[in-house]
Design a protein around this nucleic acid. Structure first.
Lengths: 92, 92, 92, 92
DNA sequence: GTGGTCTAGACCACA
DNA sequence: GTGGTCTAGACCACA
């Protein structure tokens, strides 16, 4: 269940988690319009601190994979229809 | 009609709503002695949850702009006649 | 351990929790300068939702019993050295 | 859908609604442990004011048909296992 | 039909 | 890992 984070990898944990989530979104595990797991669930699933999952989710948001609604969660976007915003840092 | 809340602003939504209401009171849109809109109406006008408008109205109350009467509503005070309490409860 | 909240009392739960905390502060269970339990711990101790303990802590803050430091916690004040603010925000 | 309230009946509206709800509970429309409709839903279903449905639900509570949890709703009790408290007024 | 309180969560900013 | 804010409801006391 809990996928492994390699703390010796040059890729930081938040980036590894982001990659796992991108894989799940691409594979349709999390459908367009559906929410990804909550911060709390991701903390438990990957055994990391809140800030780490927050960084991972921020990466997904900046990359245009999800949008975040305060008090609700982060929802999968239909990425094909959106401009790639990676690095733009304009999303909420 | 519904003024915009900027969810990306460093000022939280309840503070933005409070600022809009202060502007309306100062401009005389809501006269001294008259009620401001009900919590339900403010929810609809700004598209936020009730707790958010309650935080905004609490801010107005703490700042001396309105007084709240249970079961009735919040009424505009003649601010000139009251000590300025703004800032008393802004921390935390 | 978990003191009882009487949901049939005319005093709402947050006020009962505030009274328990005032008793503990007065009795020296929480010393001046020391933190009171975190919101999460109070939720578990009293079996209530977080908003309820937040209302209780807000009451303590308004009454001058504690000061709250964001990201840290709420610390017991030396009440003798502060003006009694109790009652300032009890209305509404 | 909305059952009729007879405003000319000697039985007041809240008592008629309580009777409808007792019938539904007895018939198993609302199962033991399940919630009855919210106050808002009952207002709409019967076309009456909030206070009226509140009186109806209070009657059910006093009669031991349901228990009310603040912030959650009113849940059907297994009446066979409880003493008939009608009129006792001890329930929450 | 108002404001008051509560539930049970969520994400955010900060330390 | 804290307190801050928000969502989307619920029931309560009062007018």
């Amino acid at each position: 269940m809990a996928r492994e984070i390699d703390h010796r990898s040059p890729s930081p944990p938040y980036r590894q988690i982001a990659a796992y989530l991108v894989a799940d979104i691409t594979a349709g595990v999390f459908a367009v319009g559906a929410p990804i797991p909550s911060e709390k669930e991701l903390c438990e699933a990957y055994g990391v601190a809140r800030n780490t999952v927050r960084n991972a989710v921020r990466w997904l948001r900046d990359a245009g994979y999800v949008e975040t609604v305060v008090g609700r969660g982060s929802y999968v976007l239909d990425r094909a229809s959106s401009t790639d915003k990676a690095g733009a840092n304009e999303s909420a």
